[in-house]
């Protein structure tokens, strides 16, 4: 079993007929994902990659069983699309939209919390369990980055994920499940909320978090480890160690302000509970070797 999705998870694609939607539907299927249907208002009766398209989520879930929904919906319509998926009873939702309005993001997370659902994203490449399934867009065909294995990865960045994961693979490991939390200031799901899933996953031996300056998500992970809720080895790579205070480095969430969110504080928190923080992407592989020894990877 992997976390969030595997090859059996029944996936709906909202926005399946769009350019991005249809292109990545093809790749998701290619990667092993069990895509069962799609939704685009006004396009019912069409097919994409042999999957039926419905006008709405409600009409789709009336006809086929759905466990998770992948949104290829523009940022300004994402809140509506997430609420529609929740209305359809779907509990796992991934949104890759880059540019979701902040106040929409707050309402999305709020709704997910009260419905007992999990919304991953936005501003992410999504979720992948290499060799099994993916929801989102990852270059899964690049073996030196997306090799199947036993390391869980969580990330706030797309570009940096390829960089760090390549180092994990170079060190002889592979990835069990990779969850892209995303680079927005209010992600639907936070790092720490994934840790219990990795803890329970018998295919994950250790977790790598790819974080950066800003916010408190890395500190929350340290807290989980400190409480003993998460007990597996934890290795972090954090971007922005040398970033000047007050400058926003790329992601809207990546800023040190009012003395909070510095990488220094994050390192302290993680190391104080026995986690390792790699100064360079390459060291992530070294730490994994040190912590896991010759265990099966």
């Amino acid at each position: 079993m992997s976390i969030f999705i595997d090859e059996t998870t029944k996936v709906l694609i909202q926005g399946i007929t769009g350019k991005e939607g249809s292109f990545w539907t093809n790749h998701m299927i290619g990667c092993g994902t069990n895509v069962v249907a799609g939704v685009t208002p006004g396009k019912e009766g069409q097919q994409v990659e042999g999957r039926d398209v419905y006008h709405s989520v409600r009409r789709a879930v009336d006809k086929v069983e759905v466990e998770a929904s992948m949104l290829f919906v523009p940022p300004r319509f994402t809140k509506d699309a997430v609420f529609e998926a929740l209305d359809g009873g779907i509990k796992k939702i991934v949104t890759v939209a880059d540019g979701i309005p902040l106040h929409d993001a707050v309402q999305i997370r709020k709704a997910a919390m009260s419905e007992g659902a999990m919304v991953i994203g936005g501003n992410t490449s999504g979720v992948i369990s290499p060799g099994r399934a993916m929801m989102g867009f990852f270059p899964y065909w690049i073996e030196r980055v997306y090799k199947q294995g036993r390391i869980g990865v969580m990330t706030r960045s797309g570009s940096l994920t390829n960089e760090v994961t390549a180092m994990v693979v170079k060190a002889g490991f592979g990835v069990s499940s990779l969850i892209g939390i995303g680079g927005d200031p209010v992600p639907g799901t936070r790092f720490a909320e994934m840790l219990p899933l990795y803890e329970a996953d018998d295919q994950t031996d250790a977790v790598v978090i790819i974080g950066e300056l800003g916010g408190t998500m890395e500190e929350e992970c340290a807290e989980m480890k400190g409480l003993g809720i998460f007990t597996k080895p934890l290795v972090a790579f954090l971007g922005g160690r040398t970033a000047p205070e007050g400058k926003r480095m790329g992601h809207a969430g990546a800023i040190v302000s009012g003395g909070k969110g510095s990488v220094k504080d994050k390192i302290k928190a993680i190391e104080s509970v026995g986690g390792k923080v790699a100064e360079r992407p390459r060291f992530v592989g070294d730490y994994l070797k040190e912590l896991l020894g010759d265990r099966v990877r």
């Binding site: 990330t155 706030r156 960045s157 797309g158 570009s159 940096l160 994920t161 390829n162 960089e163 680079g183 790819i210 950066e212 300056l213 971007g239 922005g240 970033a243 480095m249 790329g250 992601h251 990546a254 992407p281």
Partner: peptide, 8 residues
């Protein structure tokens, strides 16, 4: 390219 990579 990419915020995370550029920062790194």
């Amino acid at each position: 390219a990419g915020a995370g990579l550029t920062t790194t």
